Simulated scan of single mutants.
Amino acid sequence: MRIGLITPDPGHPLLAGAAALLARDHVVEALDPTPPGDVPVPVPRRPADVYLLKSGTPHAVGLARELERRGAAVLNSAAATALCQDRTEMAGLALRAGLPFAATRTVGGPFSAWASGSPLAAPVVVKSRHNRKGDLVARADDTAALRALARAWPQEPVVVQEYAPNSGWDHKLWAIGDQVFAARRRSELSPGGQGPNLPLSLEELPPGWADLVREVGEVFALDVFGVDIIDTGGGTPLIVDINAFPGVRGQAEAPAALASLTLRRAADHRRPRV
């Protein structure tokens, strides 16, 4: 079997660990979706049996769409990956599905123009609309702070979420197929910064949180994904972000889970449909 990795970083610990396991019996090929000179990467003439899409850039998603069109299985699908890159669409689907997702509004037009005419009555969290590495995620407690953010990111398309009081810890939950992993870390909005992920067993999570993560996977048609949750009191979860194919760092069993899921997905894709 041939297995493709759509990523500019095949040495990422999760991918590298899974690839090492898969390479014992299969051929594993890396496909860098980053185009030189902004020229799209050629689609392989003979696609692999299954691809792991560990990139959410427009070029990577476009490449995955074409591979799907040519009959390859892609995990996560191009459509599901693209959905998680747009926080407006993400929030809309989550809220329509009844998930406990943070109320999210999209700022129309340049951030700077909106902020200059919007006095702030309560703290908010401002995020880039388009989910990507190095994007904007910041808390603004007052109008001055909001306008300072807008001066730093004047043309950035953003969404705004009401700030929900919480313990100051983010719960990072990840799913690889049906297997859920968990950690906590200081919120990126905390003054001291995030700090390291601290692994958690599922037994340490509030009741129902692991099932909530699996429900997110069903709603968003995701196979490998992360869900950022804050505890707003008494174990009440609030989802603040969803990520397609996150790193799942610090989880020793994650590479084996990914390798196993990859083979199952390829087998399911090959199986004739009745």
Results as ranks from 00 to 15, higher is better:
G62Q: 10
R69T: 15
L200H: 15
R70Y: 04
P246D: 14
A182Q: 02
V213G: 01
A138I: 10
R249M: 14
L52F: 00
W169E: 11
P154M: 14
V159A: 12
Q179L: 04
R265T: 12
P33S: 12
R69K: 15
L189H: 02
V50W: 01
P36V: 08
T34N: 10
P10V: 02
L99C: 11
A20T: 09
Q85A: 12
G234W: 09
R273E: 13
L238H: 07
K54A: 11
G226Q: 05
V74Q: 02
V248S: 03
L222H: 04
G250H: 05
E215P: 11
I229T: 06
D9T: 15
A73D: 01
D32S: 08
K133S: 11
G17P: 00
M1N: 00
S112P: 03
H171F: 10
D223C: 10
S55N: 05
N197L: 15
R273H: 13
Q161D: 09
V159H: 06
E29W: 06
E162W: 06
D268I: 07
A210P: 04
H59E: 11
T262P: 01
G193V: 07
E156L: 09
P35R: 05
A60C: 01
S55K: 00
G250V: 06
V137Q: 07
A175C: 06
L14D: 00
L67N: 00
V125F: 03
P165L: 03
G168V: 03
E203W: 06
F101M: 08
A148F: 12
V28D: 00
D38T: 15
D32N: 10
T262E: 05
A256R: 04
S190C: 13
L189C: 09
H26D: 02
T143L: 03
T81G: 05
A267F: 08
R214P: 04
G234M: 15
P165K: 03
